[in-house]
Write a protein that binds this DNA or RNA. Structure first.
Lengths: 263, 263
DNA sequence: TACACAAAGTGGTATTACCTCTTGCCGTTC
DNA sequence: GAACGGCAAGAGGTAATACCACTTTGTGTA
């Protein structure tokens, strides 16, 4: 830390003042001075230390907060979030609104990610993680009367699989895409038929069993089947009631019609 | 102007002032009033329209800029980025620094994503996209004298595969993870042996051929093999020089160069 | 016609002030 | 002595204003 000391205003040419703040925080992180759960220096202190004004510091912290690196608590301070690594979900959500991601594309992304995650989970899941999966499966069967509660345990199960993959990067990506799914799904979940939910619960059970048996191939196949079925079910739901607000066209792939999000 | 501006205080209870700005922009996007490439209203106009001060507007826009939804150009205005959907890469980079992602975990994530992407690309790649792949493969073979140039075309090839998948969500995810890979790789790429590069180029050619032949299984297998080999090669390189990926390395890294926006 | 310069408009930063919320100390009270 | 309550210091949140730096455009001059 002592070697480079504090760089003064010479850097301003190559780096905006705001980015100096970001870089400074980054340095603190890379030096190990800031770890998950820690509190950052107060904004006024940071301003004095970096040599910029407080609004500039706030701009930098705001940027870091937007990507989920820090988290401000009014009256208390700015903290580095504790717990597992988590990517901000707003980015994907905005991109979805901007570019009109379709439901199929979303399920396809989930399929790629979660099939891989299921495979890893089967290879590495700890007894604790397997127990968590079992609980969520049970909750799924118990919640078939309430589609909203069902959805919550659905998400929890998939999150648990992602965690059990043992790869925090994969888990973060799954979490991000799942959040997008959840955001859209909760508005229409009540349309799910009881039969579809029973099918889904059953598939979750099979995925769980494959993971418990440490059978990676089986886990991947089960996850693949489950997501294909879920996608088909949801498409069927939208068919009759919603009748495609954008006209019946959006089936065609590759057409990036930039309208509102399709369901 | 401005003297007659009315302050709207209706919904302040549920939403912070800054978030009002974000919500407002989100509304504009969802209404179709803002599309990729468009310019946002000036900060001063936004402030008057939403009923908050300009610093608050700036805070909201800074947050949106951090996640890549908008992009500010000094002296010109704030724009919605054109081109394909792109997720901010800094988030993953910070998470990597915070939680000490290992090289293996990174390659594993790439494997899951890119194997899937390669499969989709084989099914859907257009003639144009296939031509782009061919060019990058040729460039790879031509650039074996310069590891840095080789790395650029390596990235380009993988990016092209992701694009050819036809799924913008998958492409965005691949892009994000690849950026993390690139960030670490460019500092050590010179260590790559000529033999490893020839192997890599050859594998890229096979992936390309499988995609051109629309053989999804073959494309997936080739991509899987390629990434496994690359991971092994890189592990071998690192063996002698820097053993611990998470410990002392970051200090020696070059300063954040401005290839990509830093938050 | 071509070049140059200036003016308007935009984001970037700084300064200052005040508000709200959190937190912890310290008093009072039971 | 312990529990409750209030007060104050310190944190982030917002606002108003002024000025700077850059881009763009248009007009004037050579």
């Amino acid at each position: 830390m002592g070697s480079t000391a504090v760089r003064r205003k010479e850097e301003r040419a190559s780096e905006g003042s705001t980015e100096q703040v970001v870089s400074h925080v980054r340095q603190l992180i890379e030096q190990g001075a800031l770890r998950p759960g820690d509190r950052l220096p107060a904004e006024r202190d940071l301003a004095a230390h970096v040599g910029v004004s407080r609004p500039t510091v706030r701009a930098g912290l705001r940027a870091l907060a937007a990507i989920g690196v820090v988290q401000s608590r009014h009256g208390s301070g700015t903290y580095i979030p504790d717990g597992p690594p988590l990517l901000g979900t707003d980015a994907l959500s905005f991109l979805a609104a901007l570019h009109g991601f379709t439901r199929d594309e979303m399920y396809e992304a989930r399929r790629i990610l979660e099939v891989g995650a299921a495979g890893l989970a089967a290879e590495r899941a700890t007894p604790d993680q397997i127990a968590t999966l079992a609980e969520e499966v049970a909750s799924l069967f118990a919640a078939m009367a309430d589609p909203q509660v069902f959805l919550v345990h659905d998400i929890n199960f998939h999150r648990a699989v992602a965690t059990a993959s043992g790869n925090p990067i994969v888990a973060s990506l799954v979490e991000m895409v799942s959040a997008l799914y959840y955001e859209r799904r909760r508005d229409t979940a009540t349309r799910a038929s009881n039969r579809d939910m029973r099918d889904a619960a059953e598939m979750h059970r099979r995925i769980y069993q494959a993971i418990r048996a440490h059978d990676a191939d089986q886990a991947r196949r089960a996850m693949e089947t489950h997501l294909m079925q879920a996608s088909a079910h949801q498409a069927k739901e939208a068919d009759g009631s919603d009748a495609a607000p954008r006209a019946a066209a959006p089936k065609a792939k590759g057409r990036r019609q930039g309208g509102r999000p399709t369901v």
